[in-house]
């Protein structure tokens, strides 16, 4: 399912280029330009795909790892402080 979610994200990336409505001035419901309506639908679809990502591709292990004590002495540890000391 995780693969399907990322394929859907890729599909949305492609579908953003709606050449087919490029010169279409049709007003949906009498007021909404069709090119704008398409991209409103795109935004809603994006929210739907991200909901799927949260449900099926959520990184469950991150939370527990982040909660553990750091194995160094604060943000200045590792390379940054080492180089300064040197």
């Amino acid at each position: 399912m995780r693969t399907v979610v990322w394929l859907l994200v890729a599909l949305l990336f492609v579908l953003h280029q709606d050449f087919w409505y490029w010169d279409d001035r049709t007003l949906l419901f009498g007021f909404l330009p069709i090119g704008l309506a398409y991209h409103i639908g795109f935004s809603i679809a994006a929210a739907g795909v991200w909901a799927l990502a949260v449900k099926f591709a959520w990184p469950d292990t991150v939370e527990a790892w982040a909660e553990q004590e750091g194995d160094a002495d604060g943000p200045e540890a590792a390379g940054g402080a080492g180089e300064r000391a040197g």
Binding site: W65, A66, E67, Q68, G70, A72, G74, P75, E76, A77, A78, G79, G80, A81, G82, E83, R84
Partner: peptide, 21 residues
Amino acid sequence: KRYGYVTQCQYFRARFESSKL
């Protein structure tokens, strides 16, 4: 959260082993 970073520079300094970054 794990290492106590507050800013991007703190993270990048540690990640790329460079204080001057």
